[in-house]
Every structure is written in structure tokens, then in C-alpha cells.
Amino acid sequence: MYSSELIKGTLKTIVLKLLAEHKKMYGYEITQMVKEMTKDKIQITEGALYPTLHALEAEGILITETEFIGKRVRKYYSLSPEGKKLTKEKLSEFADFMNTMKFLLDIKPKQA
């Protein structure tokens, strides 16, 4: 399992990517999907996920719809048009960042 510092910086991108692929998801579903996809290597904590979801919603990147499950309410998140655009940018940026990191971390030990 990766450290929370690493996950924190990538959480927004992970959420956006998942929502781009699955149209609408709720909080628990997101955590479970990440957990399964990464074979437990990345476990998103609730304490990190919900603040991020709320912030993205407030920024207009995510839109929400609610569904009643018996007496409780389930909140589904999906990408707004602006969110879709941002997701592409974020993924592109992250891919570039990964290449840079790969280059940087591969090269550095050789230089030393």
C-alpha cells in the first residue's frame, strides 16, 4: 500500500478518471473500485475522499444526483462538461509528470 502523501496528490486525478469511465459513482463505490483495481495497493480513505468530492462539486467540476436507499440517501457523482475537459487536462498533465518522474528518478542514481 502506498503512502498517504503519494495518494493525496493523485486523488483528484483518480476520482476524475474513474468518473470519466463510469459516468456516475458514489463514495463507497469509488473507494472499492480503486481498491480492487489496484489490488489493495491504493486505498482511498474516507477522510481524504469526501473533502475532495465536496470541493470538486463546489468548483462545478462534479455534478450530483441523489437516490434514496430505504431511509438513507446515496449521492452519486458525475463529471460536468467542465469536469470532462479538466479530466483530459489532468490526465495529460499526470502522464507528463509520470514521464518526468521516471526520467528524473531513473537518471539521478546513475549521475550519482
Binding site: Y26, G27, Y28, T31, E46, Y50, L53, H54, T66, I69, R72, V73, R74, K75
Partner: peptide, 16 residues
Amino acid sequence: EMEDLQLNLLDHICCI
């Protein structure tokens, strides 16, 4: 205190 957050957490806990 945030209602939205209360409902999110409630659903999440119930799911678990």
C-alpha cells in the same frame, strides 16, 4: 454539521 457530508458518511458506513 454539513448535511451533505452527514449523508455521504452515513451511506458509506452503511455500505461497509
